[in-house]
């Protein structure tokens, strides 16, 4: 039960964002001590595959809508992100292969995961 309480506390971050600022200010972060966080991490985690086993992408080459139409089925889910007039789509089927992407959209450095 103690772990549940810790998780509940560490996940208590701001949930709403305004249209004006367009993103969540999650600066309220965690009030749990580093020691308790690490303890919870060690208790709740195990190694599933080797470190860097997934081919993580860094600033990947992006295609056009026409490229997307050739590669992605119309009813496939994509993670869509738009910022500063730039929009990008990351098909979830692709995310399942690479798991993690470091990218930059509209000048903003982002990480995408699924």
């Amino acid at each position: 039960m103690k772990n549940c309480a810790i998780i509940a506390r560490l996940l208590s971050i701001a949930v709403s964002f305004s249209l004006a600022t367009t993103w969540v200010d999650a600066s309220s972060a965690s009030t749990v001590s580093k020691q308790d966080l690490e303890k919870e991490y060690r208790a709740g985690s195990f190694r599933a595959v080797g470190k860097d086993a997934f081919p993580v992408l860094h600033n990947p080459t992006m295609g056009s809508v026409a490229d997307g139409d050739r590669a992605v089925r119309p009813n496939e889910w994509v993670i869509g992100f738009a910022f500063n007039g730039e929009a990008r789509a990351y098909p979830i089927t692709v995310m399942g292969f690479h798991e993690l992407i470091n990218d930059r959209v509209g000048g903003l450095p982002i990480t995408v995961c699924w």
């Binding site: 992408l57 992006m62 295609g63 809508v65 997307g68 590669a71 990008r88 098909p91 692709v94």
Partner: peptide
């Protein structure tokens, strides 16, 4: 939009 279309699936 740009799309990540050429990566592994």
């Amino acid at each position: 939009t740009k799309v990540l279309a050429r990566a592994g699936r």
